[in-house]
Design a protein around this nucleic acid. Structure first.
Lengths: 186, 186
DNA sequence: GTCTATACCTTGATAGAC
DNA sequence: GTCTATCAAGGTATAGAC
């Protein structure tokens, strides 16, 4: 056989990941990615049925990294759930701001596939759920985790979309986080 | 002159608004809109320099309606800032869920133009800011409003993107709102 | 099985005629 | 102001070379 394999799926995802992180989703076209790995655009369809599948793969990678960062932040501090929540919140925001293009992709548009296999959106919140369970008990743990996630996510999104130019956003972030940490502990 | 005026800017915005609300942003193409108002696509560019300008106009309309709903909710209840915040939070979420396509447009991508003229994102939070000012004082009012806005916005976004299938989201929403209303009152 | 060549269709946008 | 014509990108399907 003459046509040996020039590209592998993982390579494609990796290149797409870097491109999105650097220049944003709009910059990622099938032709552009193909050019980077030196093949024709149509060849990509032998590895991904459609563009959205590629984007999903990229998003999954991003979720994996984000979840890892949260895990790390949670285990670094003491086992006090309040400190853990605070640490995870700060880390979450940092990650989102530093990987702005990627973060937007993670939560823009794509309905979560909830694939049981690897990184899923709910896996991202798992460490938060663990902390809230200790703090407020199993019955309210999910609701508490949802609330905290919503706050942190919303804050990052508003910052990324430029809706928080006024004063220092950090203050509002820490204030909100404090409200949860205190308010949830009865 | 042969070609008389067939369309007005406001009509275009109105039609685009309805189309977005019904079928989402993806459904709005210049050709599609042109067809609706019975004109050629290129003619639209005499009313909007580019598509994004049209989308901005639509978003501005949406912000205006959302802000009006919040104002209404705030004045309907007593002058207790806690009740006002709670009422506005519930109303905000309702509006977002009911106008999902529109809501996504409001906060997706577009950097806010902060036009001093009419409806701007900060005008949306104005009634919230008024309530927090009474509750926590002027020095912390902005931070508190930011935090509340972030929570509500984040919650709606997570619901709209399908990241909250598990159990009843309402519980988490009310729990979070309660945290703020109580936590901010010292 | 993998990649190339090619073509189709939709879309945003522009130029110039009336 | 609106028209026609036209362009450049981009997603995608298909046929075929090796």
């Amino acid at each position: 056989m003459v046509y040996t394999q020039k590209i592998r799926r993982e390579i494609l995802v990796e290149c797409a990941y870097e491109l999105v992180e650097r220049e944003g989703v709009e910059a990622l076209s099938m032709r552009r990615l193909a050019q980077i790995v030196d093949v024709r655009a149509s060849s990509l369809y032998h590895h991904f049925p459609e563009k959205s599948a590629l984007l999903s793969a990229v998003a999954e990678q991003g979720l994996f990294h984000l979840a890892a960062a949260l895990e790390r932040a949670s285990t670094l501090v003491s086992s006090d759930p309040r400190r853990q929540i605070y640490a995870m919140g700060m880390t979450y925001r940092e990650w989102g701001l530093q990987h702005s293009h990627l973060y937007r992709l993670l939560f823009a548009g794509t309905p979560p596939i909830e694939d049981a296999s690897s990184a899923s959106p709910s896996a991202t919140v798992a460490p938060v759920l663990a902390a809230t369970e200790v703090l407020v008990g199993a019955s309210q743990a999910t609701a508490a985790a949802q609330a905290i996630w919503a706050f942190v996510h919303g804050f990052v999104m508003l910052e990324l979309t430029g809706h928080m130019q006024q004063c220092l956003p950090v203050e509002g972030f820490q204030l909100g986080l404090a409200c949860f940490v205190q308010g949830l502990g009865r």
